[in-house]
Simulated assay, not measured.
Amino acid sequence: MTERQIRVFGDPVLRSACDPVRVGDPRATALVDDLIETVTLPGRAGVAANQIGVSLRAFSYNIDGVIGYIINPTLVEVSGEAELVDEGCLSVPGFYFPRLRHPFARVTGVDLDGNPVELSGDGLMAQALQHETDHLDGHLFIEGLEPAAKKEAMRLIRMAPWY
């Protein structure tokens, strides 16, 4: 297992939809191990594979002390009135912006053995499920900001020392 460096805004791997993971591929185990190792650091709720430079559909999560992963996730349900929540992203370090998210979300996918996996939750889990599947579809959370907030976010990002 290796903690992997997080790719930041501007890296092309973050802007492309990820390919499905081939279940049974021995590299998938190494990817999941790296995702788990990388998400266990303090302050991390989720890490998508493309955030560590791998364009495959998988992410890890660390919500309320529960750590896990899902391969080939699909967001199958969101419910409740979308509400503004402060959201940040490891790929846009140091910033939080108000983003509309549904209070409940559910994803389905598989584990390393190809067994069905379903993750669902509200609050931070719902936010993480939506955020991480967006990553795997090649979208950063700033794309969903209200126009004025997005304009301000882009201004601040361009001034960031990591940009």
Rank of each mutant, 00 (worst) to 15 (best):
T38A: 02
A126G: 05
M154R: 14
W162S: 14
S60M: 06
S16K: 15
F95H: 10
D122N: 11
A160K: 15
V13L: 13
P93E: 09
S91T: 13
V32P: 00
D11W: 14
F141Q: 03
G109E: 02
T2D: 08
Q51C: 11
S91G: 11
L56A: 13
I36S: 00
I70S: 02
R4P: 03
T2E: 10
G68K: 02
A17N: 11
D33I: 05
E37M: 00
M1V: 10
V76C: 07
L140I: 10
A58N: 01
P26W: 09
D33Q: 10
G138M: 13
G94L: 10
A48Q: 04
T133N: 05
A45I: 11
V78S: 08
E81Y: 04
I52T: 01
G65M: 03
G43D: 08
L140K: 08
F104S: 06
G65F: 00
A160P: 14
K151L: 10
Q127D: 10
P161V: 13
L90P: 00
Y61R: 03
G24A: 08
A28I: 03
L35V: 01
V39W: 00
I142H: 07
V117Q: 03
M159W: 11
G10V: 15
E87Q: 07
T29F: 06
E83A: 15
V110E: 15
W162E: 12
I67S: 03
V21W: 03
L145S: 10
L90W: 00
G65P: 01
G114F: 03
E77Q: 12
V32D: 01
R99M: 14
G53M: 05
E81C: 03
L14K: 00
P42G: 09
H139R: 14
A148K: 14
K151H: 15
D11S: 13
D86S: 12
R27V: 12
E152Q: 14
V21G: 03
G10Y: 08
T133Q: 06
D113R: 15
R101Y: 05
R155F: 15
L119K: 00
F9Q: 05
I6L: 13
G24V: 06
I142S: 11
P98V: 06
I67V: 15
W162N: 06
A153L: 11
N50E: 09
E118G: 07
F59E: 06
A148T: 09
D137P: 10
E37N: 02
Y163T: 11
V117E: 01
L124C: 05
V39T: 00
I63G: 00
A48T: 01
A148I: 12
G65W: 00
Q127S: 12
P103D: 05
A28P: 04
L14V: 05
G109R: 02
S91H: 05
G80K: 09
H102Y: 12
C89Y: 06
R15M: 13
P147N: 12
M159L: 14
E3D: 05
T29H: 04
D111M: 06
N62V: 03
G138F: 11
A28F: 01
A153M: 07
P103H: 08
Q130P: 04
D64A: 13
P116A: 05
P116L: 04
D134Y: 08
V23N: 09
H135W: 08
G114A: 08
E146A: 15
L119T: 00
A82G: 07
M154A: 15
R27G: 12
R57W: 05
A149K: 09
